[in-house]
Amino acid sequence: MPAKVFLTQSQKDNLQKALKESDRSQLTQKILMLLLINDDKTYQEISGFWGCSS
């Protein structure tokens, strides 16, 4: 079951800015996961996107 939207617009904007500016792959992955969960993607959809297990 996907999580309900939990990020404010300001938090989402800050994460998107950090995503654009980051050169660290682990940070990029974590930010993307937070944004995908916030956009009501399921853990199965996210794991399929990354090619890993949920």
Rank of each mutant, 00 (worst) to 15 (best):
A18P: 00
R24L: 14
K41A: 13
L7Q: 04
A3H: 03
L36I: 00
D40G: 03
G48M: 11
L27I: 13
Q26W: 06
R24G: 07
L19D: 06
E21Y: 04
C52Y: 05
D13V: 03
K20A: 15
Q11N: 07
K12N: 12
T8W: 00
S54V: 07
S10R: 09
S47I: 09
K17M: 09
S25R: 06
E21R: 13
L7C: 07
I46Q: 06
Y43W: 13
L34D: 07
E45K: 01
N38M: 09
I46A: 08
S22D: 04
S25K: 06
L35C: 12
T8V: 03
S25M: 12
T8I: 08
S53N: 11
S53Y: 08
K17T: 13
K30I: 09
L34Q: 06
I31V: 04
L19K: 00
K4W: 04
M33S: 05
C52K: 09
L36R: 12
D40P: 00
I46G: 05
Q11Y: 02
D13Y: 04
N14R: 11
G48E: 14
K4N: 09
L36W: 15
I46P: 02
L36N: 01
T8R: 02
S53I: 14
K30G: 03
G51N: 02
L7Y: 10
Q11K: 12
W50R: 03
L36S: 02
L19E: 06
N14L: 10
Q29T: 12
E45H: 02
L36K: 11
L15T: 09
L35W: 09
I46N: 03
T8Q: 03
F6R: 02
N14W: 07
I37A: 10
Q26V: 13
S22R: 03
D13R: 10
Q9M: 08
L35A: 10
N14H: 05
T28A: 02
L15Y: 13
I37H: 11
D40A: 14
S25C: 02
L27T: 15
S53G: 13
I37R: 12
K41P: 00
C52I: 14
K30F: 10
I37D: 05
M1T: 06
Q29S: 14
K20R: 13
L36E: 06
S54H: 05
K12T: 14
D13M: 11
L35S: 05
N14I: 04
L15E: 03
P2D: 04
K12H: 07
I46M: 11
G51K: 01
L15W: 05
S47H: 01
W50A: 07
S10A: 12
R24T: 08
M33Y: 08
K20P: 02
A18T: 01
N38A: 06
D13C: 01
M33F: 10
M33R: 12
D39S: 14
I46Y: 05
F49P: 01
F49Q: 01
E21L: 11
K41H: 10
L32W: 00
E21W: 00
S10N: 08
L7R: 01
K12R: 15
F49I: 13
L35E: 10
Q29G: 03
S47A: 15
L32Q: 15
K41F: 15
Q29P: 00
D23P: 00
F6Y: 15
K20S: 13
N14C: 04
P2I: 12
E21M: 11
T8E: 00
